[in-house]
Design a protein around this nucleic acid. Structure first.
Length: 460
RNA sequence: GGCGACGUAGCCAAGUGGUAAGGCAGAGGACUGCAAAUCCUUUACCCCCGGUUCGAAUCCGGGCGUCGCCUCCA
């Protein structure tokens, strides 16, 4: 898998055999989340699912940033408290995440619930000379950490030259960043050795990652836009205090763009998951997000979602064919063998692709290949054992990708009776009656397909 | 100005040295009472110009273009 730190693909070598500790930078919960935010969570949920399928015990930690400038600003504007705002949008996250099939992380820590660890960490940095206090603010001293810039490739003199940083005369270097911010009227605050105040943005992730995963944990993941300064600063804070390595592998997903620019809450060019969900099945949204490699930028468009919807229908219908057919005691040997071979090949291709830096787009190709084989060969003559194997294979692939097939269930008896009536009508070439019944069933959500092997039904 | 990514068919997209997966859309065909679904066939000067190599979409150099970061950001 590709490691942003080394800019190379590397084999996964975990700290503790059989275990993967993974920290995903979560959202700041000041408002609705958009599909671009969720690309990250879907991608790394898929990574976690895959690593689990590979036999690792995965501990995923995904935080909520529930105290920062925007939260304070939004709370004041809405005449509510920061805490209430956080509760509302954490619930919002969970609702949308569940709809998208994102598994709960083992831990969803919140910054405000880890003040002790945060303050201890800042104190450690102050004590070891990596941070300094100015008028109740505490800043990290980037010049005290020689490796600063290793992840992002930024050089301190260039950062200075960039001149996009507002000059704060109190800081020793323009790139020094706040670990602790002094209290101002109307803001939530916590007591600290430097007076009432609140943590800066980056320190919470260091403190929480260390709390739950320790140093030198396996995978630190997040959006590509977090590389600098957020992740760079996390590394500096953690490694300056503890020494050693903060995280082994850094994974960054590409941005989702809309109208030629990164989808961003501050830019306003967003598509809310909540509104997309009204028009597209969660599997469709997920398939769309996984249709490109996770590190590539991805363009959002309705056309692509339509395309994903058609693609998902293809897979779902192939799966449906497995549930309503293939019940023969003794299957046609040649056909069974052919299908089992297709399943074996799909399995091989799927996992090879996923092992290659989580190449979901490539992995999906194997799934579609299997779907075509099912569409070609599946019929009443296929044995039950082979059918079960195919169903298991498809469900396994879907499970790794976080997709769930529609289970058509048993056909209700009165629908079955209607289908039999229609067959009788067709037998006497009473097309008007046959079409009438078909239309009625369609309105009830049961679609009929007349095939060479007989009539087949599926749900709309 | 600095750091980084990307440019493959109408659209999306995989493919890191041996003449191009997969999906969507289109066209033609098969099947069908019709419909739907499905299957088959079909569409690529791999951004441009040089270079390395027996051989390059893949490596190197130079362009052009798009995007991200350098400020809150998944």
């Amino acid at each position: 898998m590709y490691n942003s730190m080394t800019r190379r693909r590397e084999p996964l070598e975990v700290r503790d055999p059989g275990r993967v500790g993974m920290y995903v930078c979560g959202p700041t919960v000041y408002g609705q989340l958009h599909i671009g935010n969720f690309r990250c969570f879907v991608v790394f949920d898929t990574v976690a699912r895959f690593l689990t399928a590979e036999g690792y015990t995965v501990t995923r930690v995904q935080n909520f940033t529930d105290i920062d400038d925007r939260m304070i600003e939004r709370a004041q504007r809405e005449h509510t408290t920061v805490a209430a705002l956080a509760e509302r949008y954490i619930a919002h996250y969970h609702e949308e995440a569940e709809a998208l099939g994102i598994l709960r992380a083992q831990v969803h820590p919140r910054a405000t619930e880890h003040m002790d660890a945060i303050i201890r960490h800042i104190q450690g940095l102050v004590d070891s000379g990596h941070a300094y206090e100015v008028e109740g603010d505490v800043y990290f001293d980037v010049l005290s950490f020689p490796r600063y810039g290793a992840l992002s490739g930024q050089r301190l003199d260039e950062i200075e030259a960039g001149a996009r940083i507002e000059v704060d005369e109190r800081k020793r270097h323009p790139a020094d960043f706040a670990l602790w911010k002094h209290w101002r009227p109307g803001e939530p605050s916590w007591p600290s050795p430097w007076g009432q105040g609140r943590p800066g943005w980056h320190i919470e992730c260091s403190a929480m990652a260390e709390t739950y995963l320790g140093m030198d944990f396996d995978i630190h993941a997040g959006g590509h836009d977090l590389i600098f300064p957020h992740h760079e600063n996390e590394i500096a804070q953690s490694e300056a205090w503890h020494g050693g390595r903060f995280a082994r592998y850094w994974l960054h997903n590409g941005m989702l763009t809309l109208k030629g620019a990164k989808m961003s809450r501050s830019e306003g060019n967003v598509m809310q998951v909540s509104s997309l969900r009204q028009r597209y099945a969660p599997q469709v949204l997920r398939l769309f997000l996984l249709s490109a490699h996770y590190r590539s930028p991805l363009v959002f468009s309705e056309e692509l979602l339509q395309s994903a919807a058609s693609a998902w229908a293809r897979l779902d219908e192939a799966y449906g064919r497995l549930t309503v057919q293939g019940q023969a005691e003794e299957g046609a040997q040649a056909l069974d063998r052919r299908l089992l071979e297709a399943a074996r090949l799909a399995h091989e291709n799927f996992y090879r692709a996923m092992r290659d830096d989580f190449n979901t787009a490539d992995a999906l190709a194997g799934v579609f290949d299997l779907a075509r084989e099912i569409n070609t060969s599946m019929g009443p003559g296929v044995g039950a054992a082979a059918t079960r194997r195919l169903r298991g294979a498809l469900r396994e692939f879907a499970g790794v990708l976080g997709l769930e097939f529609t289970d058509p269930g048993e056909l209700e008896p009165h629908f079955a009776a209607m289908i039999r009536q229609r067959e009788l009508a067709r037998g006497r070439r009473d097309w008007a009656e046959a079409d009438r019944i078909r239309d009625e069933l369609a309105r009830a959500g049961v679609l009929l397909e007349d095939t060479a092997q007989g009539v087949r039904w599926r749900r709309a």
